[in-house]
């Protein structure tokens, strides 16, 4: 058989066909709201975020400190063992500079790009990262391996949410030397 010998199905429409009513459509807005139980581990995680701390959970068998905390170790398949506080600093595992919103709409000209990152939290086992945002940093200064620190909401404004951490920012301001390197790199790029 060859695909070329068949008349294939699938009738393409333009979005204007729908807007102008060239074809009939019906629409639906689901009105579903949820209340997801936090459970024990994430419940404690959120409660500690409200206190301005990041908490993990240990597994004695594989010797890991896990972030986000979980009540069982998915590798050893046994109950996890102990609560342990981690630092609110970490290392950028990877990052992106994002010009679109969650629904694929474009960010406006005056809206700065979002900088999501995977941050390996200090005090947790190597490679244990969480998704969060970077800010107070020039996108050109970010690189994999950058040390960062959490910027928290004021205690009174915290609600027990991952957003109690506003974002992470570089642990240290870029040194003079780094600034000079950057300038040089920029100039080189321009020449190219």
């Amino acid at each position: 058989m060859k695909l070329e010998d068949y008349e294939l199905g699938g009738t393409p429409l333009r979005s204007s066909d729908i807007k102008k009513g060239n074809v009939l459509t019906t629409s639906w807005e689901p009105n579903l709201a949820y209340a997801w139980d936090d459970g024990v581990a994430i419940g404690r995680y959120l409660a500690e975020l409200k206190n301005g701390r990041i908490i993990g959970r240990t597994c004695y068998k594989c010797n890991r400190i896990m972030i986000p905390p979980r009540m069982f170790c998915e590798l050893c398949f046994r109950p996890s063992d102990e609560w342990v506080y981690c630092k609110d600093t970490g290392i950028v595992n990877t990052f992106s500079i994002c010009h679109i919103n969650w629904d694929a709409s474009r960010r406006g000209p005056n809206e700065p790009p979002l900088i999501p990152a995977v941050i390996e939290i200090d005090g947790a086992s190597k490679g244990m990262g969480i998704l969060h945002m970077l800010s107070e940093v020039d996108p050109d200064d970010i690189k994999v391996g950058l040390k960062v620190k959490a910027v928290w909401k004021n205690p009174g404004e915290r609600t027990g949410s991952i957003t109690d951490i506003l974002y992470f920012k570089p642990l240290r301001a870029p040194t003079k030397r780094a600034k000079a390197t950057k300038k040089r790199a920029k100039a080189t790029r321009k020449r190219k």
Binding site: L13, I18, T25, T26, S27, A33, W36, D37
Partner: peptide, 25 residues
């Protein structure tokens, strides 16, 4: 026990297909 509230923020537009188009026309 605490919980986290949210919803799924999408909506839908369905075409009627070939047969549905004829039926509803």
């Amino acid at each position: 026990p605490t919980f986290w509230e949210g919803h799924i923020p999408v909506n839908y537009v369905y075409t009627y297909g070939h047969a549905g188009e004829k039926f509803f026309r």
